[in-house]
Design a protein around this nucleic acid. Structure first.
Length: 437
DNA sequence: TCCAACGTATGA
DNA sequence: TCATACGTTGGA
């Protein structure tokens, strides 16, 4: 307080200055001095450290935020600084809340966006074929299989994630915490909520999985584990990460939206390259599909808005039943790769090519079984019809799959391999599926 | 050889 | 029963 006294000695001389000057120039200084005095006094008061004991100090006094009117706190508190300091603490709480929010709302997404969950499921099913993709998807979609958000959100789909709702909620919390007029009780309430959320988040780690079929199922696969970390990172903004499949205009996939049947995509989205740099003909070099390796056709609908946008009339791509077949097959847990062998087919096939029809031939019944898509070639990995090729345009009469989705193996003549396995050397059908099972 | 259309197997 | 898609055929 000795210093305080010295400051006080300076006041008398200052009072000799002309009133106008005193008011305009010195008054502010005086206020500052008072503030300093206050701080110094406060340092020895019940609040040795404003920062460290802020909460304690505040708890004992009304939450006055107007510095001019309450320069002196009843308990030696600096109301003017409190808001700033409080802001930091509030931000911390906010961050925690947000983190928890995303963890907790995964399930909510599924509930609110059934379709997203559906897409998530599809993606989950498809993921096995394209591990890298799965990883990306997981990251983006949220669910282990991409739709964590959709899945659990979107999954993505609409994996995929960035939905307005979550953000809005977060914003609400944020605002709530910053409300200048918030009272101690109010804050307490918020904290309570925050705590509950945290707890929920902790539980959601397990509960979320339980709640999300896709997500949970995906996690069963050992291979999916690696993709989990990315998934968590996806929590930040579900839709933000664009899925490789989509052009910038597309949001993430919350819905993880693999469009079911008539899902549409812009023509530009359709990547025709079979090489599909890891995207499977990836439309997008990088991004969601890119990494995912999801078929270019896969559309991961970003939760609400994005999905709606994608589905608009402008879209030219259509996802057809073939996808379903593919994904369904992938879902089979038995050892037989779906594409290459169907439960009912007596003839053993591999890579979509009949290995031998001798069995049926010998029986007299000509084995004219339809070959199935290999499921691993670029076209097969494409999930959406272009909508512009002759096959798509003449679907009713042509009965042909989109030319861009026509399996490379099926394009070859059935017996071309001389009866020998024509399975794509690089990607044995069995191997492809074994990645996940 | 390519393409369109038809027959038909397959799965939902 | 319907939608999808493979196999086949015939025309350009």
């Amino acid at each position: 307080m000795a210093e305080g006294t010295s400051y006080g000695l300076l006041l008398p001389p200052l009072l000799l200055l002309p009133p106008p000057l005193l008011l305009t120039t010195l008054l502010p200084l005086l206020l500052l001095l008072l503030l300093l005095l206050f701080l110094l006094a406060g340092s020895s008061d019940t609040c040795p450290s404003i920062r460290s004991n802020l909460s304690v100090c505040r708890s004992s006094a009304p939450a006055h935020h107007h510095p001019n009117h309450h320069a002196y706190g009843g308990q030696g508190q600096v109301s003017g600084l409190a808001p700033m300091l409080d802001y930091s603490s509030e931000m911390d709480r906010y961050r925690s809340s947000i983190a928890t929010f995303y963890k907790t709302n995964v399930n909510m997404n599924v509930t609110n966006f059934p379709q997203s969950a559906k897409l998530a499921a599809r993606l989950a099913a498809a993921a096995p074929i394209f591990p890298p993709t799965a990883a990306r998807l997981g990251a983006m979609a949220t669910a282990p299989w991409g739709c964590h958000e959709n899945v659990n959100m979107n999954h993505p789909a609409a994996m995929f994630w960035g939905r307005p709702k979550p953000m809005a909620t977060a914003a609400t919390h944020h605002h709530h915490h910053h409300h200048p007029t918030a009272t101690a009780g109010h804050m307490t309430s918020s904290h309570s909520h925050g705590n509950s959320m945290h707890q929920g988040g902790g539980v959601s780690g397990g509960g979320g999985n339980a709640g999300s079929n896709e997500g949970g199922g995906a996690e069963k696969h050992g291979h999916t584990a690696p993709s989990l970390p990315p998934t968590q990172s996806s929590h930040h903004h579900p839709m933000a990460p664009s899925n490789g499949n989509f052009l910038p205009g597309y949001g993430g996939s919350t819905d993880c939206g693999v469009m079911n049947k008539q899902g549409h995509a812009h023509p530009e989205m359709m990547g025709l390259s079979e090489s599909g740099s890891c995207n499977g003909g990836g439309v997008m070099g990088s991004g969601f599909l890119g990494g995912l390796g999801l078929p270019p056709g896969v559309i991961v609908m970003a939760m609400g808005s994005a999905g709606g946008g994608i589905a608009d009339a402008g879209s030219a791509f259509q996802m057809t039943g073939s996808q379903r077949a593919l994904t369904d097959c992938q879902q089979h847990t038995n050892s037989s790769p779906c594409p290459s062998s169907s439960p009912s087919s007596s003839g053993v096939t591999a890579g979509g090519v009949a290995l031998s029809t001798s069995t049926s031939s010998s029986s007299g019944a000509v084995a004219k079984r339809k070959r199935k898509r290999c499921g691993v070639c670029g076209p097969c990995r494409r999930l959406i019809n272009c909508g512009v090729c002759s096959s798509c345009r003449n679907r009713k009469t042509g009965h042909q799959i989109c030319k861009f989705r026509k399996c490379e193996e099926l394009k070859k003549k059935p017996g071309g391999g001389g009866g020998v396995l024509e399975r794509p050397p690089s990607v044995p059908t069995g191997e492809a599926f074994r990645w996940f099972f």
